[in-house]
Amino acid sequence: MTLPEFFGCSFIAFGTPFAMFVFTIANDSIRIIILIAAAFFWLLSLLSSALLWFAIVPLREYLWFGVIFSVLFQEGFRYIIYRILRRTEQGLQAVSENPSIIENKHILAYVSGLGFGIISGMFSMVNLLADMSGPATMGLKGGSEVFLITSATQALAMILLHTFWSIIFFNAFDVNNYMHIAYVVGTHLFVSLITLLNVHEMYLATLLPNYIILLATAALAFKVAGGSKTSFLRFVKCQ
């Protein structure tokens, strides 16, 4: 159960994002660059939250503290990316071979969101995956045996959520829709904090709400990006 588990969990967590990358990002060099830049900003946010967590010694035992600030930092850096991308739009248009990147503002949001998501998923999964690949696994430290697969599932949810959040978030700042901003920050906080329950192996209580939120966020992002019920139906029926 080492290699099969390794591959299974990698594909669960990164299969969908990888497909999204291949089909929507990889063909356009400027999108790859934005993706990596977004990943870099996520790293900066993680670094600052880890510094904060590290610096305040008395609170180091309390993960919720680190989690809350990490979420706030991430949303802060998402806003910074938003500002940077919107400010450099003209330049991007000059650099991009594909003008649609400017015409459809959601593309930038999607790309940077995916960058956020992929790097965050990698950071949470990659060491687990390395452990999984051998010599043996069976939960960590006597923990649950579904530890790894739930981690992978949760990582997938986070990656997709980051993508959708960025779409909603960017649009919300474009149209000054404060409800949506609050929704993004609120659901991010909720999703992250509810995973604190994972310690008690209450996987149903964490995964189920998170996936419900994922679906709701996906629907909202779809709507924000200009989709409607009819266009969705048309898409399903391949019309």
Binding site: L46, L47, S49, A50, L51, W53, F54, L63, G66, V67, S70, V71, Q74, S120, F123, S124, N127, L128, L140, K141, F147, T150, S151, Q154, A155, M158, V191, S192, T195, L196, N198, V199
Partner: peptide, 21 residues
Amino acid sequence: FATSAVVKPFMDSLSAKQVFI
């Protein structure tokens, strides 16, 4: 250096408890 000194302990304690940020 920043990652191995600061971020890694943070991420380790998060992932040991399966907390996702």
